[in-house]
Nucleic acid binder design. Sequence first.
DNA 1: TTAGTATATAAGCATTGGCTTATATACTAA
DNA 2: TTAGTATATAAGCCAATGCTTATATACTAA
Lengths: 108, 108
Amino acid sequence: MDKLNEVADDLKLLGDKTRLMMLGLLQEREWCVCEFVELFEISQPAISQHLRKLKDKGMVKESKRGQWVHYSLNVEGKPHITAVLHGLPDSHTLLSSLNKTGVTACCD
Amino acid sequence: MDKLNEVADDLKLLGDKTRLMMLGLLQEREWCVCEFVELFEISQPAISQHLRKLKDKGMVKESKRGQWVHYSLNVEGKPHITAVLHGLPDSHTLLSSLNKTGVTACCD
DNA sequence: TTAGTATATAAGCATTGGCTTATATACTAA
DNA sequence: TTAGTATATAAGCCAATGCTTATATACTAA
């Protein structure tokens, strides 16, 4: 696949507000699936499906710890993605746009 | 609409290989609709619809000259878009990925 | 084992999106 | 005016996408 198609596919993935928000938040720290489930107003399977797409494209890494799965950003060598993410508001601003001041701890 | 939604919508627009290619080519110079019709292997209405979406989002400007309509890039003040476009291959490389060495003149 | 919790997958549905063909509009030139 | 060319719009089709509910899997703890 040539470069253009690869970039277009990456951007299509970022062109969803939930996934873009996830990646924005992941710039600050890693997040547990259960936190995302609390944050977003969509079902747990919907969260899981978004994360799978991001993982399949290699944009996030998962790390299983006991019952919980944590996701972290994995965009080394994708400068076009990094550039977009750097332009996003910071985590605090992103969170307040969800009308969530914080997340109650749901994992260790 | 908040910043995140605006960026997500912009990226969704760029997440199509035809539109991304158009914007990539428009970095070098302005292009006439008739040239795009020659370049891409889709119908003239399909070209027109892509350009309308780009225009509606304010990413391109149109300039009518006689029978022809020329489009030019209009991404000032959209650093996240500019960053993505700068990462694309140059026009010559983009064109060769379409298996077109050049475009025969179709307008003045 | 059993029940409980966290996450993933499957299946189905409604919406969106890109394409097509047909047609309308705008301009040019005879 | 008339015909020809360039572009835009309308309508419809089909595939892709994001969501839901139901279910499966994986882990924990009693």
